[in-house]
Amino acid sequence: MTVAMSAEYILETRDLTKDFSGFTAVSEVNLKVRKGSIHALIGPNGAGKTTVFNLLTKFLIPSSGSILFKGKDITREKPADVALRGIIRSFQISAVFPKLSPFENVRIALQRRLGTCYHFWKPVSSLDILTERAFELLDSVGLKELAHHHTEELAYGQKRALEIATTLALDPELMLLDEPTQGMGAEDVGKITELVRKVAQNRTILMVEHNLKVVASLADRITVLQRGSILAEGEYDEVSRNPQVMEAYMGSVHA
């Protein structure tokens, strides 16, 4: 039974805890992300969602507890190593390379597979074999026409789409999206929601999201964090009816 369980879950945390000199930002979180699902992590401001993210991607070192990816303990690995295993994250503020073109942004990610990142004696034309794939990826997020524009001049929603294309370039098994629709207008939110749905087809996604509409329409499973601990977990309908969750979100007092 336990063996079958661990094959089913791509990512698990066991009593994951993070202290910042006395302040416990994340406390004994046991998270299980099922393979092939879209899992959302929600919670009020300061609940520790982004800290959990940074722990999972090794940008922060856990105080205690462990993280398992496909059954392997990755608690002590470095950020780049985790990325090489197939866990790719996005950031809350759009993570693009602003002075490179969208085409180059995607190509940077594709380049990693070539293993030529230290080759300073090779011409840049040695990367031409990646051009076709880069355009395919840009096309899939609707940025093909803007491939050679200046990334810093793109609209916010387009930057986020570019970020997703860059992440997809690495064909990650597990995508961690940190508030993919944050700060977007309604139209862009719809577009990004569709995009996430599309890219989720053959991979697992764990996302932090504030917009509950997006969560309701996308997530298979939801974990609610509050003050660093898990408050509730389940499907959207189940979780949204949970009185504790309602209190945490609405601040409604009940005796």
Partner: peptide, 25 residues
């Protein structure tokens, strides 16, 4: 040549956004 090499491309990416370059592996 170093600037216009696969290596140079990654250097620019690091200059532009180091955490992102790390997260790409």
């Amino acid at each position: 040549r170093a600037i216009h090499s696969p290596f140079g491309q990654i250097l620019k990416a690091i200059r532009e956004n180091e955490p992102r370059a790390i997260s790409l592996g």
